[in-house]
Simulated scan of single mutants.
Amino acid sequence: MEKTMRAVVTHGIHDYRLEQVPVLQPGPGELLVQVEACGICAGDLKAFMGGERFWGGSEFAPYVEPPCIPGHEFIGRVAQVGAGYDGPFQVGDRVTSEQIVPCGTCAYCKRGLYWMCEPHNVYGFKHYLNGGFAEYMIFPRQARVFAVPEQMALEDALLIEPFACAMHGVDRARIEKGDVVVISGAGTLGLGMIPYARRFAPAKIIALDLKEERLALARRQGADLALNPAQDDVSAQVMALSQGCGCDVYIEVAGHPQSVLQGLQLIRKKGRFVEFSVFGEKTTCDWSLIGDAKELDLYGSSLSPECFPKTIAGIADGSLPTAGVVTHILQLEDFEEAFRIAAQGGIKVALRP
C-alpha cells in the first residue's frame, strides 16, 4: 500500500492545489477506498468560486473547513478494511457512499432524518472528512455504503449520487397523474429528474434551459417540451397546456435567481414549488405571490435520503437513462481545466486519479 497519494486540496477560494498527501489508514470499522473517479457537483464549483453558502457571510457560518479534499460523487473499490469492520464489503468490492455521513446521535438522526444531521458532515468540505478528488479516501464507520454493479460503466456509475438527489427532489414534488410539470435547469439533476418524474404519469414534462445541447438531452430523457426562456415564450406555452392556469409543479434546479422568479410566475394557484439548488447569489421575490396571490406549497429538497438503492437499480435496468450526461472525464492533475469546463456549461464533469 502506498504511503502517499495525489489529491486536490482546498486551501481557500480559488486556492485548490494538487498535492502529495499521506494515505490515511482505516480506523476501527472504517473502509479505505481506492477512488475510480469522482464527479464535480455544482456545489463543488460554487465553493471553488467563493459562494457565501460555503465560506460564510452575514447569514452563514463557514461550511468549508480547509485544508480538505473535495468531491462527494465518487465510485471506488475497497482497498483495506479497518479492525473490527463487520459490514458486508470486502477488499476488491466496487462501492459508493451517500454524500453525508450521519452522526447517529443528534436530534435529527434520532428521528430518522439522517440527511438533516446537525453536524451535516458531507464528504469533501471538512478537514476530517475528505472527499474523492484523490487516489484514496476513507469511508467512516457511520457511512452509508452501497455496492456498485461490476458491469456498470463508469460514466453510468458516476451518476448514482446526482440521480439519487434528483429522485428525492421529484419525490418532494408529489407529482400526480395529469400534472403539468416544469423542470427548470437541464443539468445533471434536471436530466435525472425527467425520466423519474415520468413514472408518476404527468400530462406534460417541460424542461427549461439556456443551452441547446442540454435541451436536446432533455428531449432524449423524455421531456415533452424543451424550451429556452431566452428564445421561447415559455409562459404562453405553459398556459396553453394548463387551461390558462399555470403548471402544477415547478422544480427549480438551475440555481439562478431568475429561475426562481420565473417559477413563481409560471406556477398555478395551489401549485407545488420545489427548490433544489445551491445559489451563488441571493434571491428576492414578492412573497405575496406565495401567500395571498397563489397559496403555494413550497418544498426544499436536500441530498438523497433512501434513494441510492433505487437509483442504482434504475441506472442498471435502463429506466433511468444516462447516455450523454457525463460529458468529460479528466485526470486529477487537470482539475483546473475540469472546473473551467464545468463552469462554462459541461454537464457532468469528473476527475479520475
Rank of each mutant, 00 (worst) to 15 (best):
V349D: 03
F48I: 08
G84H: 06
R77Q: 10
V78E: 01
Q99M: 13
D292S: 13
Y136H: 14
I341F: 07
G291D: 09
Q331H: 13
V145T: 06
V35E: 03
V81Y: 08
F308M: 10
G246C: 12
L31D: 01
I100S: 01
G318E: 07
D156Q: 15
P70S: 09
P321W: 05
A254T: 07
P140W: 00
Q90G: 15
P257K: 12
E19S: 08
R268D: 02
P66S: 12
R268H: 08
V274Q: 02
M193I: 12
S319E: 11
F48Q: 01
L24F: 10
Q142F: 00
F146T: 06
L298M: 15
Q20H: 11
E118R: 14
R214E: 07
R144W: 00
K282C: 08
L215S: 09
L129W: 02
A197E: 05
G112K: 13
S277R: 03
G124C: 03
I267A: 07
G71M: 09
A61N: 14
C307P: 02
A201D: 14
V122A: 04
L158W: 03
A338N: 04
A293I: 14
R141S: 00
G271D: 03
F335D: 01
V35I: 15
G280T: 05
K211A: 14
F273I: 06
C38H: 07
I160P: 00
R174I: 07
A316H: 11
E73P: 03
E52D: 15
T96D: 04
H256Y: 07
P195I: 05
F200M: 12
G131C: 02
M49S: 13
G12E: 07
C247M: 06
Q231H: 14
H14M: 10
S58E: 15
L227E: 01
G132K: 00
C307S: 13
P162F: 12
A37H: 08
C109A: 11
L241D: 03
Q262T: 08
T10H: 03
V249M: 02
L208D: 02
W55N: 12
A83F: 08
A223W: 02
T188Q: 04
D86G: 06
D292Y: 14
E333M: 03
C103T: 03
W55L: 08
Y108I: 00
G346A: 10
A134V: 08
L189D: 01
G92F: 12
L210H: 05
I267T: 04
G187C: 10
P353M: 05
A343E: 10
F89Y: 15
E212S: 15
Y123P: 00
L32A: 05
D15I: 11
